[in-house]
Simulated assay, not measured.
Amino acid sequence: MRLLILTNSLNCLGENDAPLGNAFRRSGCEVIFGEINAISADDYRYFTRGVLVPRNGQLYDPGSAAQGDRGAYFFDECQLIWVMRQPQDCVARDIWQMLWLASQHTPFVNSIEGMTFLNTKHALGYVVPKENRPFSYTSNDFSLLWQRYRKNPDQSWVAKPPNAFCGQNVFLLHPNGPNVRAILQCLTGNTAARHVFDYGIGGFKAEYAVLQQFIPEVAQGEKRVVVACGKAVAWHGRQLHPDDHRSNLTQGGKLIEVDLHSSEIELAELIGKKLMAHGINFIGIDMAYPYILEINIADPGGLYDAKLVSGVDHSDQVAELIIAHFKKYPS
């Protein structure tokens, strides 16, 4: 099997690129690292700049540069493609379109349809059972979100964009908070300030925001669960930074070792199997049981972090599950 892993940079492999690339090579596969933002077409055959890694070459750590034969590699000469990064905004529409077309001939670990439509906070209502998700309200109309906030004067909320990541622009809104109105205006594009121009030369500026019920269980920390082909394979805990309400490692959260009890495993695998029906075979789930807070499909961290805290590398197990799945269900 020849696997093409699409990533940002060939000179700085990510936390999934490196260990999973190593694991697939140990399983006897050829591995190519390719640049997701450099996809091109030769008479509608799609290819990208990449590196074919020697099968018995050096093993990589995150941050390493890919070493091997650099050149142009065609998608239809691979048996499996794994999109590990999202394309840059300025080329995203073209990249997703070309990837979808390529996926009509070559299997993808995570389907382009799934990455496009389910890699968002909007999807929690579809993927997660109602009893396992916080109540949320989504709009690009500031006044609707403001009314919802004021309707529950004793409730704390979390406000955030539906398609951001790594804790970006995630705000904790306490009851009667002095800046809540300004925060909700900001998250929805400050349309009240722009309304006087009736869209004018600046155009339509409204942006969507999610107002989500704050879950007290988060104060005890979250768990990131990595699920491959519907099976929970690795997990770790994240403690809140003492000066922040977010547990994201990028925002100062602390990585800790945790156990996962049977109910948590059952819930994670239920979600994993539901996503498999949409061609999604590798995800990271953020959980404060019994609640699911977020599902990560595009390059979900957790596998490398679980190794850091437990000393156990589960990347070989992931590779075995992925290879077995695509042998059992070839395109």
Rank of each mutant, 00 (worst) to 15 (best):
Cys78Gly: 03
Ile265His: 07
Trp146Thr: 01
Phe74Cys: 05
Phe117Lys: 06
Phe24Pro: 05
Gln79Ala: 12
Ser263Trp: 06
Ser40Leu: 11
Lys231Ile: 11
Leu211Phe: 01
Gly28Trp: 13
Asn22Ile: 06
Met1Asp: 08
Cys166Leu: 09
Cys12Gly: 08
Thr250Ile: 09
Leu6Asp: 00
Gly221Cys: 04
Thr250His: 11
Phe117Tyr: 11
Thr250Gly: 13
Val312Met: 14
Ala192Ser: 14
Val91Met: 09
Asn132Ser: 07
Glu113Ala: 10
Asp198Ala: 05
Gly71Arg: 05
Gly50Gln: 01
Ile280Lys: 00
Lys223Ala: 06
Glu131Arg: 08
Lys328Asp: 08
His236Gly: 13
Pro19Gly: 05
Ser156Cys: 15
Asn132Ala: 15
Val31Gln: 04
Tyr208Val: 10
Gln58Asn: 13
Asn281Phe: 01
Leu124Trp: 12
Asn163Lys: 10
Glu113Asn: 08
Asp89His: 11
Leu293Phe: 02
Pro162Cys: 04
Leu270Ala: 06
Pro134Trp: 07
Ala234Lys: 02
Ala102Ser: 02
Ser263Pro: 12
Thr116Gly: 07
Ala232Trp: 05
Gly28Pro: 12
Cys186Asp: 13
Gln155Ile: 08
Val309Leu: 03
Gln67Ile: 07
His314Cys: 15
Pro216Tyr: 05
Phe204Ser: 09
Ile112Ala: 05
Leu10Gln: 11
Thr106Asp: 02
